[in-house]
Every structure is written in C-alpha cells, then in structure tokens.
C-alpha cells in the first residue's frame, strides 16, 4: 500500500468513525474503554486516544449523553448512550451510507470488471 492509499483510508475512517460510534451505541450503552476497544478491533482507529476527542464532540453536539456508573474493578466509569438526536442522526446515516457505498462500489469496480 502506498502512502497515498494510507492517507485516503485515514480520511475515509475519519469520515465514517462518528457514525460507527453512534451505531455501536444503538440500543446499548457502553463505557469509553469498551467503545474504543471495539473500534480498534474493527480496524477503524489508528490511535485509540483520538476516539475521546470525538466522543466529547458528540456529547457537545448532543448526539450522545453520559452517565457515571460504579464499577466492580476500579473507579466509576462514564457510560455513553445515544440521545434522541443521536438516534435520528444514525437513522438518517444508514440509508445515506448504503447509497454512498453502492455508488463508490460501482465506480471503483467498473474498471476491474470490464
């Protein structure tokens, strides 16, 4: 993979990450470390720490909300969950993403098929 490909992927990840976080929180509240772990495992983040600035931006935009909960192993943890606005943003993103993905697929695969 060339450096340019890497950069392109970084940009794509960055663009999609916000809605991936919303999707992970759909119907399920999670604490930060857990969220970060899932995103990293999915290969969506290069540096895990950058998820926290994103989370605080989502909170500021009122797409997610947080509550502190006691933990059996350690200090209290902050759990993230979707707000109604976050749920709506996710609902709007889903069809838009499918359309986007199909459009990119058509263009990117065109040459490969012919």
């Amino acid at each position: 993979m060339t450096a340019d490909d890497g950069k392109a992927l970084t940009q794509l990840r960055r663009g999609a990450l916000e809605h991936c976080v919303l999707a992970l929180l759909d119907g399920d509240e999670r604490y930060g470390y857990d969220l970060v772990g899932e995103l990293a495992e999915a290969g969506l983040v290069a540096s895990e720490g950058t998820v926290y600035p994103l989370l605080s931006r989502l909170r500021k935009d009122d797409l997610v909300t947080t509550t502190w909960r006691e933990s059996e192993s350690g200090p209290p943890r902050r759990y993230y969950s979707l707000t109604p606005a976050g749920r709506q943003a996710l609902a709007e993103f889903r069809p838009a993403w499918r359309e986007f993905r199909a459009a990119v697929d058509r263009l990117v695969d065109r040459k490969a098929r012919s």
Binding site: G32, Y33, G49, Y52, L55, S56, G74, P75
Partner: peptide, 20 residues
C-alpha cells in the same frame, strides 16, 4: 475545560485497561 476533559478521559482509559 477541554484540556481537563481529554486528560480525564485518557486517565480513565488507562485505569480501565489496567483494572484487571
């Protein structure tokens, strides 16, 4: 406040990662 929030988040992450 943003600086404090970021540091707190990272501290929490480290604490959670090493909690076990």
């Amino acid at each position: 406040d943003e600086a404090a929030g970021l540091v707190a988040d990272i501290e929490e992450h480290i604490a959670a990662a090493t909690a076990t």
